[in-house]
């Protein structure tokens, strides 16, 4: 079911090994998720609501603990080090920063204070100025807004702010959760373009969770598809874009002119249940 598994092997920076996550000791959310993020790559994690994408990210960043979640089986390795029992602040120091869903920022702080808060783990005051300039370089709009209260910025500006805040920590890996949420298509394109730029210029790896599969597979090199707490499909971005099921379910495309017959729909439903 996994399709063609492209093992990239040695340069895998992040490895999840059949991770199982339980919330409040009863609710099983992840049922053995395995995935790898190679160094310097953009890997995309696709799936419908409730598939377990955000939980996967939180299990990596350690934020599960703040929501009574627990990794009960499997392990997570980053740079050869197990991190599934670490505190979120230690994981940030190792070089993983999660950008949470919904553009969460410190609403009463100014844009620049938000960025400075992102650099909390780094004590070096001298490089702070340089990093601010780096972020303003990627997001010129933030520079004009640096004194503005971030809670009053527009959705697109806030999304830029939270990505910029993550950059301030000099992460090796950014976990980006639904950056396209509630943004206009043009803005989504702009932000994804900047993420691609950051990836190329800073060498930052990105694990990108998205519902907008088209945009995500546009910048990612590899993708995983999740359903009911499992990875059901993975492959290179091109392969996934060509995949019939993906086209049908996530890209909203099917073979031109061909109507789906009822029998085929039922087949998909059966298949989905079997996977779940």
């Amino acid at each position: 079911m996994g399709g063609l598994r492209l093992r990239i092997g040695d340069n895998d920076m992040l490895i999840l090994n059949s991770v199982e996550v339980v919330y409040s000791n009863v609710i099983l959310v992840l049922r053995g998720v395995s995935l790898q993020v190679p160094e310097g790559a953009i890997v995309s994690l696709l799936g419908a609501n409730g598939a377990g994408k955000t939980t996967t990210l939180k299990s990596i960043s350690g934020l599960l603990g703040t929501e009574l979640g627990d990794v009960t089986h499997g392990n997570i390795e980053f740079d050869g080090q197990r991190i599934d029992r670490s505190e979120p602040e230690d994981i940030v120091k190792l070089g993983i920063v999660q950008v949470m869903e919904g553009r969460r920022q410190f609403g009463h702080l100014s844009v620049e204070e938000n960025l400075r808060a992102g650099a909390y783990t780094r004590h070096n005051g001298a490089s702070l100025k340089r990093d601010l300039d780096m972020v303003y370089g990627y997001f010129p709009r933030l520079k004009a807004l640096r004194r503005a209260t971030s809670g009053y910025c527009s959705g697109g500006e806030q999304q830029m702010l939270v990505i910029g805040r993550a950059l301030m920590a000099h992460p090796k890996l950014i976990l980006l959760d639904e950056p396209s949420l509630g943004l206009a298509p043009l803005l989504v394109e702009e932000i994804f373009g900047i993420v691609k730029n950051i990836n190329e210029e800073e060498g930052t790896s990105v694990l990108l969770v998205e519902q907008n599969a088209m945009a995500a597979l546009g910048i990612a090199s590899y993708g995983y598809v999740m359903e009911n707490g499992r990875v059901v499909l993975d492959g290179s971005a091109e392969k996934l874009r060509e995949n019939e099921d993906i086209r049908e379910f996530y890209l909203g495309l099917s073979q031109l002119g061909k109507r789906k017959s009822y029998r085929e729909v039922k087949h998909y439903k059966r298949r989905k249940r079997w996977l779940g």
Partner: peptide, 14 residues
């Protein structure tokens, strides 16, 4: 001040 606003977000920034 960051912690005062959002504990989870503060932890996510380290």
């Amino acid at each position: 001040r960051a912690t005062a606003e959002d504990h989870q977000l503060a932890r996510s920034t380290g």
